[in-house]
C-alpha cells in the first residue's frame, strides 16, 4: 500500500512550537478559534496587559513581534488556560517555548536571573528549593508563619517519620551527572554569565 506523504509546512513559529519536545502531538494550536476563553480566565491578564489569546494569534500569524512583547513574561504557568481550552491548545506551553526561544538568543535573561539559584540547588542537592532571594517576598506574603515553618520544618518532618529530602551520596552524584550530561549545568552557567 502506498504511504500518503503529508506536505510539511515551511518554517514558522507554529512549526517550531509543534516540533518542540515539550509540545504533545495533539496540541491544538492550529485549531485555535480565538474564542478568548483563556484570556477570560487568566490571572495574569487580569492584573496586566498580557493576553494569551492575542499571543496565540501572533504565533499563528507568524508575527515575530510577539517575542518583543514584554507582557508575555507576566504568565506564571498556572495552566488554567491549558485546562480550559476547548480545542486542547495550551497558551501556557506556547509561552514557555517562546521564552525558551528568546533566552536561547540571549534576550531577557534578567527575567530568569533570580531563578538561577533554583537551578543550582537542583544541581547541588538534587531537589529544586526556593531561592533564598525569595525569602523576604514569602515573609511579606505569609507573615511570621513562614520563617516559623522554615525553622520548625526539620522537627515536623522528624515527627512525621519523613527522611531527609535533600539527596545524598550516590543519588545526588547521579542527578548531578545527568544534569551535566544533558546540558542543564552548562546552560545554567551560560545564563549566569549573561545575567
Amino acid at each position: 500500500m502506498m504511504e500518503k506523504k503529508h506536505k510539511k509546512s515551511q518554517h514558522s513559529l507554529v512549526r517550531e512550537i509543534k516540533d518542540n519536545l515539550r509540545a504533545s502531538p495533539d496540541l491544538g494550536i492550529k485549531r485555535c478559534m480565538q474564542c478568548g476563553l483563556c484570556t477570560s480566565n487568566c490571572p495574569a491578564a487580569r492584573h496586566s496587559d498580557y493576553d494569551p489569546r492575542e499571543m496565540v494569534k501572533k504565533v499563528l500569524d507568524n508575527n515575530l513581534e510577539v517575542l518583543d512583547n514584554p507582557d508575555i513574561w507576566n504568565c506564571f504557568y498556572c495552566y488554567t488556560c491549558a485546562s480550559n481550552c476547548p480545542v486542547n491548545n495550551s497558551p501556557s506551553l506556547i509561552n514557555q517555548i517562546l521564552r525558551e526561544k528568546i533566552l536561547n538568543t540571549g534576550g531577557n535573561v534578567s527575567r530568569v536571573a533570580e531563578f538561577i539559584e533554583f537551578g543550582y540547588n537542583y544541581v547541588e542537592k538534587g531537589v529544586g528549593t526556593i531561592p533564598s532571594t525569595f525569602f523576604q517576598d514569602l515573609v511579606d506574603d505569609f507573615g511570621e508563619d513562614y520563617p516559623k515553618l522554615k525553622h520548625d520544618l526539620p522537627d515536623i518532618r522528624r515527627k512525621l517519620g519523613l527522611k531527609e529530602y535533600n539527596l545524598k551520596g550516590e543519588a545526588a552524584a547521579e542527578v548531578k551527572n545527568i544534569l551535566k550530561a544533558s546540558g542543564f549545568t552548562q546552560r545554567l552557567e551560560k545564563l549566569k554569565k549573561i545575567a
Binding site: 478568548g36 476563553l37 483563556c38 484570556t39 477570560s40 491578564a45 487580569r46 493576553d51 480550559n84
Partner: peptide, 27 residues
C-alpha cells in the same frame, strides 16, 4: 459579544460573567 466566557461568579449579590471581548481585545 464575541468571546467564550471562562467563569460565572457572584459578587455583591450580582452574577458576574467573565469573558474577553475578543474583537476589542479586552477582558
Amino acid at each position: 459579544i464575541r468571546g467564550r466566557p471562562g467563569e460565572v461568579s457572584k459578587k455583591d449579590g450580582k452574577l458576574v460573567v467573565r469573558v474577553e471581548d475578543t474583537l476589542e481585545g479586552k477582558p
